[in-house]
Amino acid sequence: MTLNLPAGAITDAATISPLALFLQADIVVKGVMIGLLLASIWTWAMIIGFSVTLRKASRESRKFEADFWKAEDIDRFYEARGKAGFPAAKVMAAGVTEWRRSTAQKVIDREGTRDRLSTVMSSTIAGEVDRLSDRLNMLATIGSVAPFVGLFGTVWGIMRAFTSIAAEQNSSLAVVAPGIAEALFATAIGLFAAIPAVIAYNRFSHGINRLEAALSRFADGFYSTLSRELEAQR
């Protein structure tokens, strides 16, 4: 890619300059463009933030899980690493807390303890998934709505272009072309925001599903371990 464009190319009327297109546009189309541009920025901010958060969460959870199964003493492992902020540690912390509370009593209600352990850990998983996928619906919304918003801007701009044809009584391409170009620019921005949003939404919802499945597996394993411990305690 070379940048040795002639100096006149920048000011050439045929060159598509987003700034020029934006400045020429109608106030409605301008509003649509600004909104879509903000949506695009927000989409990318979420994409970047999400991928960082999700990758960190799933990587640390995986590592934590692997370390957990290798650990000999659950209590000691909990004291060492159970206070971390990532989902698997929280699930484990919830389980361990509930275990300690339940076994602190004189008479242990085994069925009740199992129920409570199961409920606490699954609700912790649900809470973590909820927290992670908090803004995922924003991506879905942008992905589905941005093309329509862009289309609205385009329709509006083309309507305006046709009005200008009617006003000038001249249907030559030179009269129509700028209006249509600026109108189509709105759809371009809409698609520019929507396409990454849709891709990211699918990708992240898949990633969160996988994380949720991994946490459930971990919780089930931890639950069976605790359940076994409960059997052993007489």
Partner: peptide, 12 residues
Amino acid sequence: ERAEKIGLGVAT
């Protein structure tokens, strides 16, 4: 969160 702030900055 911090990751989202980074994301917003990078996206802008």
